[in-house]
Amino acid sequence: MKKELVKLIDLSRCTACRGCQVACKQWNELPAKRTKNFGSYQNPPDLQWNTWTLIRFQEHEKKNGKVNWLFRKDGCMHCTDAACIKVCPTGALYHTEFGSVSMHADKCIGCKACITACPFSVPKYNADTNKIAKCDLCYTRLQVNQPPACVLSCPTGALQIGAKDAMIKKAYARAEELGGDANVYGDKFVDGTHVVYILPERADVYEHLPVDPKVPLEIIIWKDVLKPAGLLAAGAVVAGCFLHYITHGPKTPDDETTCEGGNKS
């Protein structure tokens, strides 16, 4: 039986200690890269093939002039209607029994289609292996009933994982408790993500967070319209030709003009 899990990220409890960022690298054996301080606590600057989860730091000036420092743990949202799975040519990306989006690395051919398709800009390309990489919600840990490394590392309880329904319920209860602009992000689009945020601020306040993420229209046209259309059109043409052949017949050159030796004279 399918046991859908949801990782709940309560940003109102996140202290940006980045334990999750390190725990992720440790469990998944992802190397560090040399970085520069670019005037922010945030580093690396973005998700990378070797950084599957990243705490984003953002200074947000509220209407009353007070500054709010927003932290957001970025990473794969594990969509139900996952654009990456939709576009993956080889089936390297797939849904696990937990609803999360995992990846058979051996199947990945580095086509980068998922990078383009993902509404959250999550998959990242590793030129050395010619493969993409992203969070798989610690599938190997989930399989043995262990929480993902990030959840395990979180000291404040900003991260938790559990049955989808229970987590969504919890999320709404917490958002209500927080009041104000607090809201739940994740359950309402792409048929529900398996990572759900409790955002203390409105979604449009957060940088790099799409307010209304969806599988891009182009991807839908490609995969849901043109992909079947390709077969349909070719099939229709073949059928039409056959029909033409048996009803109208071929356009054959006239016999009398194909006079052998006629040109000899």
Partner: peptide, 25 residues
């Protein structure tokens, strides 16, 4: 001191921590 580093910084030898807080600011 920042979260990512130990006082006088022997954590600078830890690549993951150095990656997050690479240099003085």
């Amino acid at each position: 001191s920042c979260t990512e580093h130990w006082c006088s910084g022997f954590t600078r030898w830890q690549p993951w921590l150095l990656e997050m807080m690479p240099e003085a600011y």
